[in-house]
Nucleic acid binder design. Structure first.
Length: 809
DNA sequence: GAGTTTGAAACT
DNA sequence: CAGTTTCAAACTC
């Protein structure tokens, strides 16, 4: 604990620095680079920052507070993002941070007193001083920091925000004792803030912690919540309460800070806050706050329950960005719905897939208020996703997908498991890394996959804009289900979902490794780049965040042997594919298995066959005997033929799903075709390994488009039984792929790709896809304009080839 | 749930 | 690169 505490301090310092910067420029937060830079050069900039000046002026103590405040908001975004984005390899540092924090948090969760007590004792003095002398200043400072967000907010809102910030600062800096009276001027707003601040503080803390884990989103979410809350007091409070719950779970320190904050805000709150810190239950806190505060919303009763759930969720797993998002979304939406959203949040969190949440936030926020959009969405999303490569807006957009995503997401079941096991912290880390890793790899471009990286960003961008929400939702939903199940163990339904998802859906799948220690490709989780989670029944599992080093090292080894080992097994063929070979063109499926199958007895009609599992037809590269692959035979029979065959001979073997897939491919040219992925194979597959994208999944990401990795978590796609494997591997990808594809189509990116046929795209694809079996584009003709397909396909293919990149880290 | 089948992954 | 072994998922009962 002591060590952890020290680590936590270090992290705080960093956060503070970052926060300082952030105050200066909110937008900057988005880019990971900046975050990094901030961390590296925090001091000078920080000193320069107006906030820093305020702090200095106020008092030595104040600065700290201000810092904390900023930290909570900013730190989350920054810290989290990098961790998330960075692949497990890349994000090691971050992950470690997360882990540390998680550990801290976990212990603290039960009892905030321990860490907080010490800190609080010392800090309280400071806080008190600051509060008494500098309350106004703090408020002003807070206002400044918040100002960016608050632009839209009214003065009252600003004051509230300031109060909240002050509280947050106080919490961190000062213990409960600090009982400054809230500013009278604030009036109701203040009271609300007090209540909210209580929630906020914890929330912020939680966010910070989360951010540490890998999601910058949390902080963003907090900031967003604060902003949002202003516009709608009730909602805001609810959000706060949620946040508070989250915070409580996450870190004891946070709780302590929360308590402090409450006290400073108002004597009343101080008491309530005290209770809060204990964290008996979100409900309790919420109740206390609500009762005390006039602003309390009527729906709190339900909220309390929800909060409790949320807390559980948080405790079990890191909510990260997702939590924030979820909270926000809930606020925005009606209370009744809140439960559902919460469930979503949970899922998202689990998957990490913060991306999905982000998307939700974006959507919600957009609808709710511009402020949210700005803060929460961009920052959070950007942070999570961006961190890996660059903190670009695109990255922000990507977030949803990521939500992969290590949960993956993406990826998710495993990740979730990990989270739970490790006391949430580790698990969180794992997830984030996984998803992030994938993205990171692609994003960072450390690996060879520059192209893929580029592609990835595009996809990310695409997702957020076009499909971002939907895509995320899908995966998120799956992931959410998973999460909910995990979180809400009590609810049998949820558990069932989990089982189904985990079992059926690839994303949710669990491994059952006994001898491989989950460090070989035998392990689906490992192969997917995801950490094993609770649902896994593996033995002697080393595929856990705790053994991150080992996992990474092993992964590297495997990659060294086969750079594409972690790449998606199924590559969506593009028009360009036709180039590869006539045979490929013959193959019905638009996608091909990377290496081809070697089936001898299954006739490529069972999941034993990776081609079939991936929902793709066999190609020349396949060495299968007696191929009857419904998706396309090695001999070149197309799906249509396959269908006919299926009906005749294979019908029995094929599942309805497969038939449907085939039909879609052949028949539903429009939708399906374009999304070869989404189409029969793609959609179904998506789920499985959203996670795969996770830490290692980077490979997979590349193939499809990096996106999947993040979002991957959602196992929803599991529907497609046969595809499962492919889905698994690419699970994240699939999700992303869908997004990707859709996005591509929508955005016209395809054109680029299509054009690529002549030019780069195709070449890229070829180069990218090692095994590239490309399925001829017969489909192209059917469905949409061939161009789109080709473009998409190309993208995907190119990406797949790259997947290996991530591992290269 | 246990046992069998299957084919990929790993090893030689 | 080919052959063998190991492994875990898929499948069957």
């Amino acid at each position: 604990m002591g060590e952890e505490g020290e680590k936590g301090k270090e992290e705080r310092e960093i956060e503070v620095k970052e926060g300082g910067k952030r105050k200066e420029v909110v937008v900057v937060m988005d880019t990971p680079e900046r975050s990094r830079n901030q961390i590296a050069t925090p001091v000078s900039k920080f000193e320069e920052s107006p906030v820093f000046n305020f702090l200095n002026n106020l008092s030595p103590i104040k600065p700290v507070k201000s810092v904390h405040i900023t930290q909570t908001l900013n730190a989350l975004s920054f810290a989290a993002l990098p961790s998330i984005f960075t692949s497990p390899h890349v994000s090691n540092l971050k992950e470690t941070r997360f882990l540390r924090r998680h550990q801290l948090v976990d212990p603290s969760k039960p009892e905030f007193s321990s860490d907080n007590g010490n800190k609080t004792a010392v800090e309280e003095g400071h806080a008190k001083v600051v509060n008494s002398s500098n309350e106004q200043q703090q408020n002003t400072d807070l206002g400044n920091s918040l100002v960016e967000v608050p632009e839209e907010l009214s003065n009252n809102d600003c004051s509230k925000l300031a109060v909240a910030l002050a509280r947050t600062l106080n919490y961190e800096c000062t213990p409960v004792s600090s009982s400054k009276t809230s500013n009278p001027a604030e009036g109701k707003c203040v009271s609300e803030f007090a209540s909210t601040s209580g929630a906020l503080v914890p929330f912020g803390q939680a966010v910070s912690e989360k951010g540490l884990f890998g999601n910058g989103v949390c902080t963003e979410g907090i900031s967003q919540t604060s902003q949002i809350g202003d516009p709608a007091g009730c909602e805001w409070e609810n959000l706060i309460t949620d946040a508070a719950d989250l915070l409580i779970f996450d870190s004891p320190d946070d709780v302590g800070t929360a308590n402090k904050l409450l006290d400073p805000a108002t004597g009343l709150y101080s008491e309530t806050t005290n209770d809060m810190p204990k964290l008996l239950g979100p409900g309790e806190q919420g109740d206390g706050n609500e009762t005390d505060n006039p602003s309390t919303q009527p729906g709190e009763g339900s909220y309390l329950k929800e909060f409790s759930e949320i807390q559980d969720m948080l405790a079990s797993s890191s909510l990260d960005n997702n939590c924030k998002d979820g909270a926000l979304s809930e606020k925005t939406e009606s209370e009744p719905v809140s439960h559902l959203y919460r469930g979503m949040r949970r899922r998202c969190l689990v998957f990490e897939m913060g991306g999905t949440r982000r998307k939700h936030f974006d959507e919600n926020s957009s609808s709710v208020s511009p402020i949210l959009m700005q803060d929460g969405n961009t920052p959070s999303s950007s942070k999570q996703i961006l961190p890996m490569k660059t903190g670009n807006d695109s990255a922000k957009r990507i977030l949803p997908g990521i939500g992969l995503h290590l949960n993956a997401l993406a990826t998710t079941p495993k990740e979730y498991k990990v989270i739970k096991q490790d006391a949430s912290v580790s698990g969180r880390l794992v997830i984030a890394p996984s998803s992030t890793s994938n993205f990171h790899s692609t994003v960072t471009g450390k690996g060879p996959v520059n192209e893929s990286l580029e592609m990835m960003p595009i996809e990310r961008d695409m997702d957020p804009d076009e499909n971002g929400v939907p895509l995320l939702e899908d995966p998120s939903q799956a992931s959410v289900d998973m999460v909910t199940e995990e979180f809400n163990q009590s609810s049998p339904k949820k558990k069932r979902r989990r089982v189904e998802q985990a079992g059926e859906s690839e994303g949710c799948k669990r491994c059952n490794c006994k001898k491989s220690k989950c460090l070989k490709l035998y392990c689906e989780c490992f192969a997917a780049g995801v950490y094993c989670v609770e649902p896994c029944s593996c033995q002697e599992c080393f595929n856990k965040p705790i053994h991150e080093d080992t996992v990474l090292a092993t992964r590297k080894q495997i990659e060294s042997r086969n750079p594409l080992a972690f790449a998606p097994k199924v590559i969506r063929s593009s028009d360009s594919v036709s180039e590869a070979g006539d045979d490929s063109s013959k193959t019905p499926a638009s996608a091909r298995h990377k290496r081809g199958c070697n089936c001898k007895k299954s006739g490529c009609l069972k999941k034993y066959c990776e081609c079939y599992q991936g929902g793709v037809g066999c190609s020349i590269s396949c060495r299968c005997e007696g191929c009857k692959n419904a998706f396309g035979r090695k001999d070149g029979s197309l799906f249509v033929g396959a269908e006919a065959d299926l009906e005749e001979d294979e019908t029995e073997v094929l599942d309805k799903s497969t038939k449907e897939r085939i039909l879609h491919k052949t028949g539903s040219q429009n939708d399906v075709e374009q999304n070869p992925e989404s189409a029969p194979p793609a959609t179904p597959f998506r789920c499985p390994r959203p996670f795969s994208q996770g830490p290692f999944s980077s490979k997979r990401k590349p193939p499809r488009s990096s996106l999947p990795s993040i979002g991957g978590p959602s196992s929803l796609f599991a529907n497609q039984g046969p595809l499962a494997k492919t889905s698994f591997l690419p699970p994240p990808q699939p999700k992303f792929d869908k997004h990707f594809e859709r996005v591509m189509e929508d955005e016209e990116m395809p054109d680029m790709l299509v054009q690529g046929n002549n030019g780069s795209p195709i070449t890229g694809i070829k180069s990218s896809s090692p095994n590239s079996k490309r399925v001829s584009p017969p489909h192209c003709n059917f469905g949409m304009s061939p161009g789109r397909r080709s473009s998409r396909k190309l993208i995907l293919q190119s990406i797949p080839a790259f997947p290996s990149l991530t591992p290269k880290h």
